[in-house]
């Protein structure tokens, strides 16, 4: 028998097992799972690295300058620290972040907006309802305004903020 014929007869009978075909087909699905899993892992790793770098940078910054990269903005109203809700708004093409003070116990409704730069220092704003707010060097703009009680609702307030902004900027009301 010729060699070619021997090879043909032998290997013609060779077929991959059916379960192997199944395994090979499953690779496609597994690869997708791996890809998703790898993406999640990559995201977690990136987050961990970012946090680590930020923490290290903060430590170095604190060691070098005595000031940390992140400071909290503490708002004191009539001697009491408050945790107002965050409000974002846009004015003259710039985005601002601030906080709204909820109505005080004596019925006076007061809204306070604070915008800070990218590296805010701790700001302690101690205000009465209508007194002027002390401004730290890092605070770009501080506006005190009065709002009605119903305007505390943030959705309503955002609509009215634009109309009131010019008056607020002048410090009136």
């Amino acid at each position: 028998m010729e060699m070619k014929e021997k090879f043909k007869q032998t290997f013609d009978e060779v077929h991959a097992p059916e379960d192997l075909l199944g395994k090979v087909m499953e690779l496609n699905m597994k690869k997708r799972e791996y890809r998703t899993r790898n993406l999640v892992k990559a995201a977690v790793c990136a987050l961990a690295i970012t946090t680590g770098v930020f923490a290290a940078g903060n430590g170095i910054c604190y060691a070098a300058t005595g000031e940390s990269l992140v400071t909290t903005v503490k708002i004191m109203v009539n001697g009491q620290q408050i945790q107002p809700e965050n409000v974002k708004w846009e004015k003259n093409g710039e985005e601002y972040e601030g906080s709204i003070i909820l109505p005080s116990e004596d019925g006076t409704s007061t809204g306070l907006f604070i915008t800070t730069d990218e590296n805010p220092e701790e700001v302690v704003v101690d205000i009465d309802a209508e007194t002027e707010v002390t401004e730290d060097g890092t605070v770009e703009e501080v506006v005190v305004m009065e709002v009605d009680e119903e305007d505390v609702n943030s959705a309503k307030y955002e609509k009215k903020e634009e109309a009131n902004s010019s008056a607020d900027m002048d410090g009136t009301e």
């Binding site: 290997f11 060779v14 077929h15 991959a16 192997l20 075909l21 090979v24 087909m25």
Partner: peptide, 20 residues
């Protein structure tokens, strides 16, 4: 997926023979 499955079906035996 379709392309991969087609290639796998057509060539699985051949690859298996070489491997074996």
């Amino acid at each position: 997926r379709t392309e991969y499955e087609k290639i796998a079906e057509e060539n699985l035996d051949m690859v298996y023979r070489i491997a074996l």
